[in-house]
Nucleic acid binder design. Structure first.
Lengths: 259, 259
DNA sequence: TAGTGGTCTAGACCACCTT
DNA sequence: AGGTGGTCTAGACCACTAG
């Protein structure tokens, strides 16, 4: 049949369908975790072709309202509460109490945190990292890459880079678990008095590998944070490169109104 | 015809096409600003149906590699340099020199900044803002909403909320242009000694209105920043709610390793 | 095996932009 | 007017997941 009464002045059909479903989700008629009606059913209900239903579904997916699984169906997303990353988290008091930064936070944000160490070992410093560490590009540094979870869901992946001469006499740095208080506590025990941190924050869409690593749907935003740990002598002794699922985090900063 | 030799074990055709075009863009064969071949031509070149080409194009669009304009075509995006928002930007020295924060920054980041005031006037405080200002929800406050541009391109939209009793005797607050040094300079002239700022940073996808306001393509990420300006008496005298195009900004923070 | 989403076709008509 | 992208149809076959 060729009865194509296509979108005219009104809104596109697929958007109307998406809006309708979105309203049902927001009203709770479609509860979090529940299945969205199948494409076949939606085709019948709205009397449209498959392509139109699929575009509506795609719309909801990029709005992060649903997630769809091949062969199973589409399901309403449940938005877990976000974690807060406060600049307070590096307080020396926390380190002395034996807490690593990520644990100092998890206490406040609820949920059960866990970490997996993905890699610990020597690496050639990438250009941007090398610049921050003030070493030549390609210099051997220690990399510590780990993935953080909350309630079993991956939320964050972080890689720390440390100059070799700083870590070579600190055996804990090469262990999966660097001990109470984390690597910052170890650095301070070995004469590296931490004075200051700088963080640069960007937001962008996740790359393919990041969507895989953090179990994100494509088109999800991430926060990319790079932190320099600076000693009282002004040396950068660690650069930490972190990618976070954007919907999982709120960053808090506090700074004085300087002169 | 029904010769559907559909995706088998290999990659989907539309992804192959997208990858091919992406490679051409990255290699420079398709230069920034230049037109991507039309759908009709791509259909011929790759010998596929229109829908397949459109999916490939959609892929590139959500990767932020191209932008498409109805009736004109698709064009390779040129990535403009990013602005840096340093926490240094609120230095009192800058205010005394007559510079508003956004100008203090633009100096460093290149490009010509401009501002449009969208609204200045009394508003009922939304719930989250009211909480930060420690006033009851719905209390009348002064709202100042403006849009920032760089080289004529919208990059940021910000709304400041100030308690009525703070601003009622500061006539400049109701003007489009609050005068040299911006509203923070006016506040300090009227006895509000600013001591501290707090910022909370989130990243998420742009809403429909935000894509319109900031001329973004749908699915683009934004940075949502909310700043409290706090006086030496501990009162929050301004809350600034800002939405930024994520690809335009890098946020810089610096903080001491506190005890 | 039945049901689900994923890919693809070969068209159609519409809306926008340029000439 | 002619080209461009935007929407839509009515099917087809494939791949994944469940019972």
């Amino acid at each position: 049949m060729a009865s194509n009464e296509v979108a005219s002045s009104a809104k596109a059909k697929y958007l109307q369908i998406a809006d309708d479903l979105a309203a049902q989700i927001k009203s709770g008629a479609l509860a979090p975790g529940s299945a969205v009606p199948s494409e076949a059913e939606l085709m019948q209900r709205y009397a449209v072709a498959s392509g139109t239903v699929r575009k509506a579904i795609a719309e909801l997916r990029t709005s992060q309202l649903i997630e769809t699984h091949h062969g199973r169906g589409s399901f309403v997303r449940s938005r877990p509460p976000v974690q807060r990353k406060s600049s307070d988290r590096f307080r020396r008091a926390h380190r002395k109490a034996g807490k690593a930064a990520y644990l100092a936070e998890a206490e406040v944000s609820g949920g059960t945190p866990s970490v997996t160490v993905l890699f610990v070992g020597p690496t050639e410093a990438p250009a941007d990292i090398a610049e921050r560490l003030s070493v030549p590009v390609g210099t051997q540094v220690l990399a510590r890459k780990r993935r953080y979870f909350r309630d079993g869901v991956p939320t964050e992946e972080a890689t720390s880079y440390l100059p070799w001469d700083v870590v070579k006499d600190i055996p804990e740095m090469f262990a999966e678990n660097p001990g109470g208080g984390g690597i910052y506590a170890r650095l301070e025990e070995h004469g590296q008095q931490l004075a200051e941190f700088t963080e640069t924050v960007r937001a962008r869409l996740a790359t393919k590998p990041e969507t895989a690593a953090l179990a994100l749907s494509p088109g999800s935003p991430v926060i990319h944070l790079v932190r320099d740990a600076i000693t009282s002598e002004g040396r950068v002794v660690e650069v930490c490169d972190t990618v976070m699922a954007a919907d999982q985090f709120v960053l808090d900063y506090r700074f004085p109104a300087k002169d």
